[in-house]
């Protein structure tokens, strides 16, 4: 994630990804999962001993687990090894939906078991957990009411407040009815990533635009911040990105001093 300017310290709290139909942001999820699993390889983190390996719990509601297996393999991750070591846990919610609607409370129980380790070999406690939800709009459809949904979101964001834990959620900004809970989620998010289409038209070099809004001060590299002195201030970076099968490429950096000016 060096291209995005994100460090390991950014993987804390709540990370909100907002996309739209014209500029889908699912590719960022793969990049963030890879970064969360390989955070020891980050440049800033290489100066100090790597922390305990972080576990990633992925709730796959938009795509099936087989899709993530393919795209994570394309991203360079050895999925069978990660699964065997318990560093990657996938809740294939989409396949579960094929047999019937799953109440959100049941999903929460399964998530809690997966976060706690779930009896997977090598998945002991004491390590950070990164909960990734793809996507929140689909999970919202399973809720039986706004209170049910608010409780689920609160549980997810609370998990991200733990040490070395974070919650990454993908949501769709072009669903008008979801603006309420999206605004609440944005309010408690430390980092917001928005993908937007280019208007008008689309040049061949760019697929879309990515706005990275850092809402809180983060010390780059956590423990390494004292040595590197890198401090990410609140603000908004706007990047262009180009998608290809080899992965995304990020272009032409711009920076705004105020976080809410895109």
């Amino acid at each position: 994630m060096a291209l995005l300017g994100l460090t390991a310290a950014d993987f804390r709290g709540t990370l909100l990804l907002r996309d739209c139909l014209e500029a889908q942001g699912a590719f960022l999820l793969v990049q963030l999962i890879k970064a969360a699993l390989n955070e020891a390889g980050d440049g800033a983190m290489g100066l100090v001993p790597p922390p305990a390996a972080r576990r990633v719990v992925l709730v796959a509601a938009q795509h099936a687990a087989s899709h993530y297996a393919i795209v994570l393999r394309k991203a360079g991750l050895h999925v069978p090894d990660l699964l065997a070591r318990g560093r990657l846990v996938v809740l294939d919610l989409l396949s579960m939906l094929g047999t019937g609607l799953l109440p959100l409370q049941v999903l929460h129980q399964q998530l809690a078991a997966a976060v706690a380790g779930g009896g997977v070999a090598g998945s002991g406690t004491g390590r950070g957990v990164c909960l990734v939800a793809d996507d929140l709009s689909a999970l919202h459809c399973l809720a039986r009411g706004e209170e049910d949904w608010a409780a689920f979101l609160h549980a997810c964001t609370s998990l991200g407040q733990g040490p070395q834990c974070c919650f990454i959620g993908l949501a769709h900004a072009d669903v008008e009815a979801d603006e309420g809970w999206l605004a609440r989620l944005e309010h408690c998010a430390a980092l917001v990533l928005d993908t937007e289409p280019l208007e008008p038209g689309r040049p061949a070099s760019n697929t879309g635009r990515l706005a990275i809004t850092r809402r809180e001060v983060s010390t780059g590299g956590g423990a390494a911040s004292s040595s590197t002195g890198a401090v990410a201030t609140p603000g908004c970076h706007v990047l262009g990105y180009r998608l290809s099968e080899a992965g995304p490429a990020f272009l032409n950096h711009e920076q705004h001093s105020h976080p809410h000016i895109l």
Partner: peptide, 17 residues
């Protein structure tokens, strides 16, 4: 057992679960 098996197989590069 299909889902985790498919996940592992697809991650290992198999063409079909």
């Amino acid at each position: 057992q299909a889902a985790p098996a498919a996940m592992a197989a697809a991650g290992a590069g198999a063409r079909a679960p």
